[in-house]
């Protein structure tokens, strides 16, 4: 799986409240949620981002509540992937489960500047910074996590497993 987009860079401890504020939690509709993604952190983001763009952040991305709405809002906005130094635990799980790739790479977070164009090969564990001609690595996902991501999330993945389909 190849992903490509512009990097949007943020700091440490981006919590689930700024990813999707609690005041919008009266819906689980991903499209509606996505309209408010990162609204309290970067009001411009939703307006200016394009499909495929990539969020790059520091430590402990997704900390706070265990709401599945947070990764849902990010994914539905068209963001193709989040790169951070570290992720809060339940956010990490929830993201993979709904089919949003999230990568841990200290190297990338250190060198990527806001606005750089990145290209990622998930299977190979490579992030290419096309704007700077640099390359960073991340531990590539084991096969079955890759399969969850390819299926678009854990529900579809499980459905295929139960049907005995090749995944």
């Amino acid at each position: 799986m190849k992903l490509k987009g512009r990097a949007w860079k943020y700091g440490d401890n981006v919590d689930t409240d700024v990813i999707i504020p609690a005041r919008y939690l009266n819906t689980s509709d991903p499209k509606e949620l996505s309209e408010h993604v990162l609204e309290d952190l970067d009001p411009d983001f939703r307006e200016r981002m394009k499909k495929g763009d990539i969020i790059v952040a520091g430590e402990n991305f997704g900390c706070g509540s265990s709401r599945e709405h947070a990764p849902l809002a990010i994914k539905a906005s068209g963001v193709s992937c989040v790169i951070a130094k570290s992720f809060a635990r339940i956010f990490y799980r929830n993201a993979i489960n709904i089919g949003l790739p999230i990568l841990e790479s200290r190297e990338a977070v250190e060198f990527v500047k806001d606005g750089d164009i990145l290209e990622i090969e998930l299977e190979k564990g490579v992030i290419r910074n096309l704007s700077r001609g640099e390359e960073y690595r991340f531990a590539s996902f084991p096969d079955f996590v890759m399969n969850i991501l390819r299926a678009g999330g854990l529900v579809e993945y499980t459905r295929r497993r139960l049907r005995g389909e090749d995944i």
């Binding site: 265990s66 599945e68 339940i90 990490y92 929830n94 489960n97 854990l154 529900v155 497993r161």
Partner: peptide, 20 residues
Amino acid sequence: TGVGSTDAGMAMATGDIWLR
């Protein structure tokens, strides 16, 4: 360990879970 609702829903069907 604590997990999300999707995790629990799927484990109720399969009896297993992915873990890091």
